[in-house]
Design a protein around this nucleic acid. Sequence first.
DNA 1: TTAGACAAGATAATCGATTTTTTAACCTAC
DNA 2: GTAGGTTAAAAAATCGATTATCTTGTCTAA
Lengths: 231, 231
Amino acid sequence: MNNYLPTSAKSVGPVGPAGTASSRVFDHLRKDLVGGRFVAGEKLAINALKERYQVGLSPLREALNRLAAYGLLVQENQRGFRVPKLSRDELDDIAQMRLEMEGMALERAIANGDSLWEADLLAAAHRLKRADITLDKGEEWEHLHTQFHRTLVAPCGSVWLLRFIEQLHDQFDRYRRLGPKMPTIRQELDEQHHQLVELALQRDAKAARELMDDHIHKSYEVALKRYQEHM
Amino acid sequence: MNNYLPTSAKSVGPVGPAGTASSRVFDHLRKDLVGGRFVAGEKLAINALKERYQVGLSPLREALNRLAAYGLLVQENQRGFRVPKLSRDELDDIAQMRLEMEGMALERAIANGDSLWEADLLAAAHRLKRADITLDKGEEWEHLHTQFHRTLVAPCGSVWLLRFIEQLHDQFDRYRRLGPKMPTIRQELDEQHHQLVELALQRDAKAARELMDDHIHKSYEVALKRYQEHM
DNA sequence: TTAGACAAGATAATCGATTTTTTAACCTAC
DNA sequence: GTAGGTTAAAAAATCGATTATCTTGTCTAA
């Protein structure tokens, strides 16, 4: 796998003893930014972050620089870092791009994926369902959800497509995770995950893409609602 | 414009006195990496870079962190930074993604672009032609070429699409700029720029996209040849 | 009253030195 | 000879302090 992000950025669980302070704080900040722990538009007080993440200035600044290049922060020369503002236009843009790119990736994955993929996919879907049933809609569910979507498109054959999709997911989740749960739509979305697996296993690319479009569209409606309530 | 990169990263000319050391070295390193001034796979000696760019350790490391998150460097925890390797597979991936994304962007730009865009486009094409005629195939031509392609897709309406295209261009140019000029194909490509402008002004999205596909395909052949000679 | 100048405090950026980790050379035991 | 272990040198990461820049509040002059 051609990988540009530092080791920790791809790691799933917590970074082991080998992780640098810079990477640990990058991971942590990334999660916090995506999870909505900062106010959009807010200026980051570097000294406060030093305390919060128990880290020195140098590794903290390196992490902030990475996050800015990744798109989860805005960097303005001589005036530090801020959390990007949210906007309806951008949400629309992100959702539209997800439609295009994840659709493309899913079609390719269905064409390329081998039986190992099928197994991974079933496993990822199962783990996600367990979390659904136990009503865990916290960090653990978020992680399994990300993991499921990642697995779904993994064998698309394009490192760059996967990279862009990952980035778009992070951006999308800044909107989706603004507010509290919405159980009704949530359940509908959860069911689609299983239908996606079935269609993928049947290698029905067309139907799978249509369902994926619908899935992203429904998620978009959730995100939009939360964005509007949040205003 | 929703902008995540630091001020300097979008600036066209040299950064003014307001630029930070970090941003200056980011710009400079980016140019050098895209222009092939480093050997692919090479490990960067940070102390040597300090000398080369006349900058201290902190701003240099911040620049390297940004470049890694941007995809022009690979960062491995505890063992510094290296220039990403080149591979046939990756070149194919990048070219394929350019086809998809720039095609999409061009169609949208043709649908959205106003008369100011038409003027900008004519201007960008003209400047590029001047550089062609004066046989300047150096940094200046490269800059005008980038600028032309940027202008072409600018009004596509998607900040994220533009961002990804920019990134792919940088990656593609790591291959295209491996070797010396190839005057014959070069001339052919230069002519296509003007045909692209004409089709754009005529709002012929279909023909424009086909020509863009051909343009990228021809560029791909150049890049591939250089990559193979370079091995 | 208000635009502009100024100074003081706060914040960002950078530097030089220190600590930690990796790399490579060498040695020893099998 | 070679695998495994030790250590010295090199490199990466981090820290603490300094310098540069921005921000805010206050004052002055029109």
